[in-house]
């Protein structure tokens, strides 16, 4: 965090993309990951990760909303009255989420149907409010936009890892293509190559508690490699 603050002091020219800007994107992907380090936006990480497609769509949606809400808030930050700050931020987020929902409904209706209320729940994804308060309210639009992209990607990475594990072990497929396990089940493309056909799909991976365990394992691995993140309390 200290580093980020230091970077913000320099106030670089408006649209540059140097080392400092790159750090805004790469930092949240690992060291300052919104899900595993900042504990933000866990709720939807669990519900939408049964299938990889859903996780990818959700990741894109969240990245777009974080990036643009960060940008708009940074643009408006001097005009927003302090007393109604929270509501204004929420309205910006809710507006963007509605836009994303309308577009998704037009582009891919079945996915929209499957995600149902979880699109709406992007609004209360703590990543958004957290980043608006911690970053966009005190930074220029372009940098806030990059910070939004970074945090959105950090969130998507976790989502995708969890979804890969869950879909692969739970359904034996990835992006609906059968990979392991017995053929002639689930998907219609039975003539696809399938190996490890003795594998019986593990239903536990599809159930939502599995996502909890997988995130816990990700945290375990990440913190063993990066000892400074360990909780000392």
């Amino acid at each position: 965090m200290a580093e980020v603050q230091e970077l913000t002091k320099k106030e670089p020219s408006s649209f540059s993309f140097g080392k400092a800007e790159r750090k805004l994107i790469t930092d949240p992907i690992n060291d300052n990951n919104p899900v595993t380090v900042q504990i933000l936006g866990v709720c939807s990480a669990l519900a939408v990760t049964t299938l990889l497609t859903k996780a990818i769509v959700m990741g894109i949606a969240v990245t777009l909303v974080t990036a643009f809400s960060n940008m708009f808030t940074a643009m408006l930050r001097d005009y927003i009255p302090k007393s109604i700050r929270m509501i204004v931020q929420l309205v910006i987020i809710a507006f963007l989420v509605t836009v994303v929902e309308l577009i998704l409904k037009a582009v891919n209706y079945p996915i929209w149907k499957e995600l149902s209320v979880f699109i709406g729940l992007i609004i209360t994804n703590c990543i958004l409010m957290g980043r608006l308060e911690a970053f966009a309210m005190s930074n220029k639009p372009w940098r806030s936009f990059l910070d939004g992209i970074g945090n959105g990607l950090g969130y998507s990475v976790i989502l995708i890892i969890v979804a890969v594990v869950r879909e692969l072990f739970g359904k034996g497929s990835l992006l609906d293509y059968k990979i392991i396990g017995p053929t002639s089940e689930y998907v219609l493309n039975t003539n696809q190559i399938s190996w490890l056909s003795w594998y019986a799909t593990n239903n536990l991976a599809i159930l939502s508690p599995a996502a909890m365990f997988i995130v816990a394992i990700i945290i375990w691995v990440q913190r063993s490699r990066n000892r400074k993140l360990i909780d000392i309390s």
Binding site: L207, P209, A211, M212, I219, W220, R223, I230, D231
Partner: peptide
């Protein structure tokens, strides 16, 4: 508890197990 799991990691596992219990 293994050090890297302390705090947050363990909370996730506990919530998962409680989720199974509630199932």
């Amino acid at each position: 508890i293994p050090a890297p799991l302390r705090g947050l990691g363990m909370a996730f596992i506990l919530t998962g197990i409680m989720g199974i219990a509630f199932m």
